[in-house]
């Protein structure tokens, strides 16, 4: 009976998707909105001549990494939603595992692990910070950088039984999340649009360029790092 029902549901979904296929326009014949038209008509080389790495200045966005310029500038509001999704999932993990006490093994962690964590942890944290600080210049950004930092925190949890970071994690997470919204509200106050890139964009390829993109990516890096560290802590407690 159950199999029959699930097959029926899958069949219904397939029928639904097939029936919606004719709604998708043919290639090159879509009716575009004003925004899409504006971005398609824009020259790849910029509206006024070529863009050169390290030379061109005061562009619309100014980030050398195209993905970052889209994720944190053009659809920054969506990224705010993404960060909220991550926060909600961390909250869910916390609620599910809230009843467990942290399991103590009563045994000193591995000597090799402790020594190598002392060597590796600074390098891992530095690399994570590099990835999210240079998010507008190189591949990477706040989400991968935060994940790398959370991996370093996991090493700390594994090598030290007494280690606990939950209060700091909550503090950092709240501060960085609200600073993200505050940067957006500053854009609203300055230019009348939420999360607009209101700072000067500078020269392409410099560390201090592309306006609010690096600021927001640093905030996202801290927030994602804190959230994933929180998840790591909760899962570790479940033991």
């Amino acid at each position: 009976m159950r199999r029959f029902l699930s097959a029926l549901i899958v069949l219904g979904l397939i029928m639904f998707f097939i029936s919606t296929l004719p709604l998708i326009p043919e290639f090159g014949k879509a009716s575009l909105s004003k925004v899409s038209r504006a971005f398609i008509d824009k020259d790849v080389n910029g509206n006024g001549g070529n863009i050169q790495y390290g030379v061109s200045k005061d562009l619309e966005n100014g980030a050398a990494n195209v993905v970052t310029s889209i994720v944190v500038d053009y659809r920054s509001f969506d990224t705010l939603g993404e960060v909220t999704v991550l926060f909600t999932s961390a909250l869910g993990v916390g609620i599910i595992l809230s009843g467990y006490k942290r399991k103590k093994f009563g045994r000193e962690p591995n000597f090799i692990l402790r020594v190598s964590v002392g060597i590796l942890l600074p390098l891992i944290l530095l690399f994570g910070a590099y990835v999210f600080i240079h998010g507008h210049l190189t591949p990477g950004g706040g989400f991968p950088g935060g994940t790398i930092i959370a991996a370093g925190i996991l090493l700390l949890y594994l090598s030290n039984e007494e280690f606990d970071l939950s209060k700091t994690v909550k503090f950092v997470e709240g501060i960085s999340g609200s600073l993200y919204v505050i940067v957006g509200l500053l854009g609203l106050a300055v230019s009348g649009v939420f999360l607009i890139n209101f700072l000067p964009t500078g020269v392409v390829g410099n560390l201090f360029s592309s306006g609010i993109v690096p600021i927001i990516y640093i905030l996202i890096g801290f927030k994602v790092g804190a959230e994933l560290s929180g998840i790591v802590a909760e899962l570790h407690r479940e033991g």
């Binding site: 045994r107 591995n110 090799i112 692990l113 190598s116 060597i119 590796l120 390098l123 594994l158």
Partner: peptide, 20 residues
């Protein structure tokens, strides 16, 4: 250099956990 730092440590920790 980084593989030399991480890979043996990970294996030793796995082996220790398996033994324990």
């Amino acid at each position: 250099a980084f593989i030399a730092l991480t890979n043996p440590v990970g294996s030793s920790v796995l082996a220790r956990a398996a033994y324990l």
